[in-house]
Design a protein around this nucleic acid. Sequence first.
DNA 1: ATGTGC
Length: 477
Amino acid sequence: MWKQVDKFVYEIPLGAKEGMRVPGRVFASETIFKQAEADKALEQVVNVATLSGILRYSLAMPDIHWGYGFPIGGVAAFDADHGVITPGGIGFDINCGVRLLVTPLTEEQVRPKLGDLLDVLCKEVPSGVGSEGFIKLSVRELDKVLEMGAKWAVEQGYGTFEDLERLESQGQLKGADASKVSKRAKERGLEQLGTLGSGNHFLEVQKVDELFDEAVAKEMRLSLGQVTIMLHTGSRGLGHQVATDYIDVMLKASKKYGIKLVDKQLAAAPFKSEEGQNYWAAMQCAANFAWANRQVITDYIRKGFAKVFGNEIKDQITVIYDVAHNIAKLEKHMVDGMEREVVVHRKGATRSFSAHQPELPSIYGNTGQPVIIPGSMGSSSFLLVGLPGSMEKSWGSTCHGAGRVMSRKEAIRKGNYGTLMDNLGEKGILVRSAERETLLEEAPEAYKDVDEVVHVVEALGLNSKVARMRPMGVVKG
DNA sequence: ATGTGC
């Protein structure tokens, strides 16, 4: 039923399954498509196509794999007036995202002190499941975090106002309303600000390995051999609890509004309904918490580098960009030649706006939005920019990473800790982690080839490559 | 992803 309609484009027509409102479309190479066929991800693309108000296509990016309700790598836009919002299209870790920092240091300067640096960073940035941070918030103060996002952190002295310009949405969504976040969710957030978490979350010291576009790289203050830092984390227990709370609300709302669910995990409410708007407000709170989290951790990273390389380094570590890859956004897009307001769900997908989009900060107005694509542990990561193709084909969206090919359990079963560490060691990659199992879950073998994923989005004209970064040291939760 | 699982 799925068929290839173009190079790297696979489609399933309307009517392939009862209730589909739009066709399904997956951006993939042959290898990647076959991998997606092997799990339930393609079925999930079809399921998403049945949701009310979905526009044009149910889409998936080449890092597609099975997820909760939506596939990870899934992108779907819904009419703001007549469509739904669904937590399954955003994910449990609301505003899980990636931030890229750049230092003035070279590999030669960092390599001899890499071990010390990683030890310091481990101490400065608490990580692991249930990890608690150094900041203990009152509920009153947490409410400010939820409504102000990264701006709260900067006002408290974590980083600079210049950082804020370089974050998607300036690290603050204005529709956040802390009264829509449950007490339980808040309790989980009180001690988790400034913590990394676990799973695929990491902090990585990298070096710029290759430049693909020297002019754009220069505008982004990036040069060959330079050391960068990549941070991947989200909204921790708070976001998870918001998702859990509202999935329950949405199940009831689906019944109330007569929304037919082909999968309960797609529980949804009309975007403009009370339930939809409450989740919308709470989801933005969780997103803001995640941006504050990455902002606080950025400050910790600067402090850590200062301990190893001297105080003056602090001001020289700058933010390149920070992207959310588990989120829904209200955006204006062209639909059949008309501008419309749509709710774009990106679930393991990154916003990828092209140059001159009004939402971009002036520094990136001419280059297009920086898109940060982390590879798996031990493989390269990429810095891309958004191209007009993404506006035309994918609601200004692209992939978010390599994407799994093995489940966590499978990775633990098939992996070998000694071999994994040997392989990383051979590549000169130093690793610090609290949990052996986490490392096995995140083994490179458990992921698709990030080069191939990036090749697909580039070949389709969604993005162009700016730089590739190679890991030197990794801190894992 | 997650004070981790029906």
